[in-house]
């Protein structure tokens, strides 16, 4: 599996909430499967240490964005399944708007920079 580049910790932490909520909006899931989905979605670029997902899930549960339920898995072990709640969906919408705003701003500034720096770099002979 591709090793993720070093993404800033704060960024990883900030993106955890919308990512987990979005994955649960796709379908109900449990810890291990959520992590697999994160890895798939990011092409292996977003590397969390696996354990850190659980405090995040518990926080979302406390905030009422997801609800957890213990149930038997197909292997016969008890497993905690999470489901997104109505509040969670609202939160996801809010997060989506915020991230889109950030994304738009960054995209704009990237394209300005790209247009400007290429000739400068060439003239410096880099």
């Amino acid at each position: 599996m591709a090793q993720g580049m070093d993404i800033n910790k704060d960024l990883v932490a900030a993106s955890a909430t919308p990512l987990v909520l979005a994955i649960l909006a796709e379908r109900d899931s449990y810890g291990y499967a959520i992590l697999k989905r994160v890895s798939e979605l990011s092409g292996g670029q977003l590397a969390w240490s696996d354990g850190m997902l659980y405090p995040v899930l518990h926080r979302l549960e406390r905030l009422g964005y997801v609800s957890g339920k213990w149930a038997k898995s197909e292997s016969g072990r008890r497993r905690k399944y999470y489901r997104i709640t109505q509040r969670g969906r609202e939160q996801l919408d809010a997060e989506r708007r915020q991230w889109q705003a950030v994304d738009t701003a960054l995209r704009n500034v990237w394209s300005v920079l790209a247009a400007r720096t290429t000739p400068e770099l060439l003239s410096q002979g880099c």
């Binding site: 810890g31 992590l35 354990g51 659980y54 518990h58 898995s73 497993r79």
Partner: peptide, 12 residues
């Protein structure tokens, strides 16, 4: 239960 959840993860 946290430990159990984490153990389930480990086993998966």
């Amino acid at each position: 239960p946290d430990v159990e959840e984490l153990e389930g993860h480990l086993r998966d």
